[in-house]
Design a protein around this nucleic acid. Structure first.
Lengths: 191, 191
DNA sequence: ATTATTCTACCGACCGTTCGGTAGGGAGAG
DNA sequence: CTCTCCCTACCGAACGGTCGGTAGAATAAT
């Protein structure tokens, strides 16, 4: 069975969805990217919407799985948070098209799929919240509102898709380290 | 002269662009929102693209102006940063449609307008960077990479457009205060 | 009467999708 | 070995529909 063509199509779709947005991307363009006529796409894929759904599912599955592994590790909250940040940023960099589409294009999901997507996304955020709350429980984190702190952290990390470039002068790991320092230690110097 | 209808149209456009994205929004829908026929829009506006450009310009003008005033104030870097954060988040909340479109839809600008937009955006980021660099120069901020710190800060603040709701349980000011604390003091408790 | 505004009607272009058909490779029958 | 049959993969053409935008008549305001 040849799912390989399908994978290529999804990958091309992700890249184009990312560049132009879901609605601005055309089937013709996606077809061209994999050297097919647009009619031929429908042999491998049932609709444009299905491609979007698959991209979002793949991306979220991938991120949840990696973060889950980090959460399960028996380390200190600080080390766990640092590792989670690095894992996440590396994943965002490795699968930047998938991730960017997931983060930015989920509003183009038809209602039924959107409804299914949101709870999974919340589950993902809950993993982050657990890391922070464990730190609070152990008395090492000062975090009056973990929900807001998670939103803030997601903001820092997710926003990297707007400016991170693979050929830039900072690697994902370097960004992760500096972001971790900032988020953990803050900006102010204390003696 | 009746620029008032034009303003209503731009406002409606901003709201719909924000909800569905530029390409998914239709002139027909925008017209309906201001109780006009689609053709009538063109008496007040020359094209869909022009509306997008105007929205982005208005939003950026507004934000730059407010931040400029904060930067000019003769206070400590810490107070200035806190004020800047609050000013920015309040502006994002007050003009959430304009702001969200500016932050998310600038890729739909035609190349010529995009080219004009980017430098103004950089100028905006430079204002933030100045605040941080002044703090470093005065020895109160620990910030090895101000560019990255600004990106991080913009991430926290800009990402609020993804989840902030006017009728939520946190006001823009409350979010600003907690984000400021987090960004300045970090997560880790220090005795 | 003149101007400003909104209307109905329409245009060409393009959209996602479907359809009928075809090329070519493997499987089974003789 | 050959002939038939089917199946996957692909294509060109066309469909109904919507898009942004235009032309010009009708109406409202001054």
């Amino acid at each position: 069975m040849t799912t390989i063509m399908r994978e290529q199509i999804i990958e091309a779709a992700a890249q184009i969805f990312r560049e132009k947005g879901f609605h601005a991307a055309s089937m013709k363009e996606i077809a061209k990217a994999v050297n097919l006529q647009k009619a031929s796409l429908y042999h491998h894929v049932s609709s444009k919407q299905e491609m979007l759904v698959e991209i979002l599912d793949q991306a979220l599955d991938l991120l949840i799985e990696r973060l889950q592994k980090v959460v399960e590790q028996p380390t200190s909250p600080e080390a766990k948070l640092r590792l989670a940040i690095q894992t996440y940023l590396v994943a965002l960099a490795d699968y930047s098209d998938l991730s960017a589409v997931m983060l930015l294009e989920h509003r183009s999901l038809e209602p039924e799929y959107h409804q299914r997507h949101i709870p999974r996304r919340d589950r993902f955020e809950a993993l982050w919240r657990k890391i922070l709350e464990d730190g609070v429980a152990e008395g090492v984190f000062d975090c009056p509102n973990p929900r807001l702190a998670v939103k803030s952290l997601m903001g820092v990390l997710n926003w990297t898709i707007m400016w991170y470039r693979r050929d830039g002068n900072l690697s994902a790991e370097e960004i992760a380290e500096q972001c971790s320092d900032l988020f953990l230690k803050g900006l102010i110097i204390r003696s």
